[in-house]
Design a protein around this nucleic acid. Sequence first.
DNA 1: TGGAAATGCGAGTATGTTGTTCATATTTTC
DNA 2: GAAAATATGAACAACATACTCGCATTTCCA
Lengths: 211, 211
Amino acid sequence: MSTRIAKPYPRMRKQPRQARSRATVEAIVEAGAHVLSGLGWAGFTTNKVAETAGVSIGTLYQYFPDKLSLLEAVRRRHFDHVLSVIRDSAEGQKPLRKFAQELVRGMIAAHSIHPTLHQVLLDEAPGDRGSRAAHASFQTQYLNHYATAVAAYRKPRKGADMETVARVLSSAIEGVIHNAARRNMLAAPELQKQLVELICAYLSGAGRIGR
Amino acid sequence: MSTRIAKPYPRMRKQPRQARSRATVEAIVEAGAHVLSGLGWAGFTTNKVAETAGVSIGTLYQYFPDKLSLLEAVRRRHFDHVLSVIRDSAEGQKPLRKFAQELVRGMIAAHSIHPTLHQVLLDEAPGDRGSRAAHASFQTQYLNHYATAVAAYRKPRKGADMETVARVLSSAIEGVIHNAARRNMLAAPELQKQLVELICAYLSGAGRIGR
DNA sequence: TGGAAATGCGAGTATGTTGTTCATATTTTC
DNA sequence: GAAAATATGAACAACATACTCGCATTTCCA
């Protein structure tokens, strides 16, 4: 696992100086992820987040100037986490099946904490106004990791550009995980096995007829 | 294509008798799908739907007793549509690749009109209170169609139950389509080709090592 | 053709929801 | 022990929006 980084969240109203307040901020962001995942963007109210964090609403506004800056903090934390998972599974030279297994295990683990956070962040929540750069950057890095893996494990064929393949692969995996999360089936080992098989089958390119 | 059925929407306040009012109701439901897809559940307001339909808010409430009954009408229409698509692609005896191509074409067509409606219906919108049966029934039929296809095209193997395979397959396809829809890439032929290949590869079961 | 039934209208209301502030209280630091 | 940091939560202002109701217009049909 990668080392835990402790960058300050962006757009904070005030920097927490003492250990107590640092824990408070962390609790708020964590609660934000929890509420967002459980109640969706519609249920993501500042009062609810504060209550979930076991903190007064006033405390929340001491550190976050408004609702959107809190959303951005949650988004950033989650994206950093997911990226580190993919990074870890891609490093080193391993056989295809091993790679697929570690990727699936990692993605499932990353989604086990807040099962639908990822989708809510991508679909429901408003895109981060100010720094669209950050959002785009995540998408780019995310795809790049998949593209690298595709390039490494899939023999080049004519008429199939890397980017599309990477997109299809990543969105298929996300679809399966998202769907499983909604049914509380993320832990089922049978599902993991099948997902690994799907990845291997696609990348090793079987089932093709002609040429 | 299947025959157009004209069942009355459930939970209607008043039955439209003349042709004019039947068109009005249809416009309202269509507008509902449009708003839901474009603005999400959060943006799905009765006033907005009425305005989009080019109809007064009073007219809307003449036929739908409340907001949720309108949602149910939209949901039902969409589910009926998707089911007919899958049904059509599954009938007859065709080779795997042909089946996959028609399925992909149909699913993409079904999502082209209201790209994110399906996800919004499943994820954001509240599950239909009264008739949970209808919702469950859709899920069951939906999965059954996939399970049938899986049974037909995938040689039986030990340790892989049909239901899980069907779930993995359907959610992978939905994931790809949903993701493409968000990027306005549904029409890209390269994407369709890759999705077909993913399905074929998985069902023909290549890339497996041992046993 | 005329009256009854069906359909359509939209300003207005009533009822909430919620993001945010601020004066005050408690805790930590040095 | 005082100053700085941190926490509190009642209160509010602003907004959103589901839904009603009295009336206008159109269609039907005898």
